[in-house]
Every structure is written in structure tokens, then in C-alpha cells.
Write a protein that binds this DNA or RNA. Structure first.
Lengths: 117, 117
DNA sequence: GAAATGACTTGCATAATGAAAGTCAGCCTG
DNA sequence: CAGGCTGACTTTCATTATGCAAGTCATTTC
């Protein structure tokens, strides 16, 4: 597919169009990425905590998504132990604002798939 | 991966967990599905109209997503010509409620990828 | 010194994606 | 009524992504 480099804020994903929805999907349009964001909203911070989630991230996918989200400045690494060096993952402002998307999916899934509320 | 058949409303996708966010992603967690929904919100109704979108749906993907969305009762086919038989795609209530998700992505992408307002 | 922990990386088989071309039914035009 | 056109897909096939299992590696604790 022909990709374009559209004027974006600092990150370097290939965008299919200048539609905001398509741009967003180019970054988070897969089955795992938003689950990382959801987990951080739920208070998880460390690699092994993500792995404990019910959906069972494959380890390579988790590592990849953390890398991509960090590159896109949706999350950032924070050192929480010097020796050995260990990092926790936290949401940036950009990541916090994804809360709206996660919430919308939460409500939709609850009502339209799980049939609750 | 081990999939579960969780008590859902009428459709038959395999769900990874009972988390509403994960359930939603099991249905719309890819780079194309929500673009179909977006297009219908923008007034498009027919196969060829979707194909004209800037992101250039591959035809096989479009046909597949329309099928999946119909199976999930997010969209429905409506006959708009008897001879030859031709169908238009429209959103069901379930689909209309996805508007919240699309909107949230629209705002997020505009602000955080395109850098507009 | 041995085993454990946290955080990944690698290998590999299977599944999904995407580009291009093919199909097919029903008009339409000469 | 043969040939082309239109709308709506299907098929093929090369490339890429996913997902499971196993391996790595730097500490740290026993």
C-alpha cells in the first residue's frame, strides 16, 4: 500500500490518510495495543503484571507493543530500581487522553456484546 | 490461544476474556473495520463508495469486513434495487452506538497525531 | 554456587493482509 | 443478440503478523 508521511506530532508511523480515525487506527488498530493502555489505567505498571492479564499477551507481542507505544509517546518508561535496572510503564498525557477511547469501547462492549446495563 | 464462548448477545466471535474492552477489540480490533463504520457515518452506503475512500480498502478485506459486521449485527443489508438485486449497507442500533468510539478516535487522532486543536 | 526473578528475544508454524486479476449476473448499446 | 459495462465480489499468491514455546541474561536471594 502507498503510505504517506503526513505532518504529525513527533512520531513516525506510516499513515494511510489524513483522516483522524484512520491515523488513530494506524497506531492502535489491533487486538492488543489498547489492552496495554487499559491495563495501565487499571494500575498495572510492570511487564509481568501485564502478562498476568486474562487475555494472556504473548511475550513477543507485549514487548513489541510496549516499544511501539513508547515510540509514539503514549507511554513512557520510569526507572523504579537502580540495581538491577528496572522500569515501570506509565501513560503520558497522550496516553491518558486515550482513556476516552477505552471508555467508549468499555461501554459499547458491555452493552452490545456482554449484554449488560 | 484458548478461546472462550462467553455469554454474548447473538453473535459468534471468539472472545479472549470477559473484559468489555477486550470483547470489543475482538470484533473491531483491526485497521479496517472501524473505517467501514466511519464511512457509513459519512453517508456512504454501497460497496463501490467504500472503495473510493482515501485509505483504499483491498476488495477482499472490504468484503470480509462487511460480512463480519453483518454477522455481528453492527450493519445490515438493505435492498435498494430489485433488478438487478443490489444492496446498501446501513448501521443497526448497535452500529450507531459505535459512533462514540469513532468520535473518541477522531478527537484523539486530530489532537495527538495530526496536532490539530 | 544454585536457583529464582524480571524482562525480554528467538525460532518457527500458522493465520491474516494486501495487490492484482478473475468471476459473474444483469443491463445497455449498436 | 454479441460485445461491453457495472456492481459486487472471489481467488491467487507473496508478504507480514501472530502466537506458542523455548532460550537468554543480568542480577539477587538462598
Amino acid at each position: 500500500m502507498v503510505m504517506a508521511r503526513i505532518n504529525t506530532t513527533q512520531n513516525d508511523i506510516d499513515l494511510r490518510s489524513s483522516c483522524p480515525v484512520a491515523c488513530t487506527l494506524d497506531l492502535i488498530g489491533d487486538r492488543w495495543t489498547l489492552l496495554v493502555v487499559r491495563d495501565i489505567f487499571k494500575g498495572k505498571r510492570r511487564y509481568n503484571e501485564f502478562l498476568e492479564s486474562a487475555e494472556h499477551f504473548p511475550t513477543n507481542i507485549l514487548a513489541d507493543r510496549l516499544k511501539r507505544l513508547e515510540a509514539a509517546a503514549v507511554i513512557k518508561k520510569v526507572l523504579y530500581s537502580e540495581h538491577p535496572p528496572r522500569y515501570a510503564y506509565e501513560l503520558t498525557n497522550k496516553g491518558l487522553e486515550l482513556g476516552k477511547v477505552v471508555e467508549a469501547m468499555y461501554h459499547w462492549g458491555n452493552k452490545n456484546i456482554l449484554g449488560k446495563s
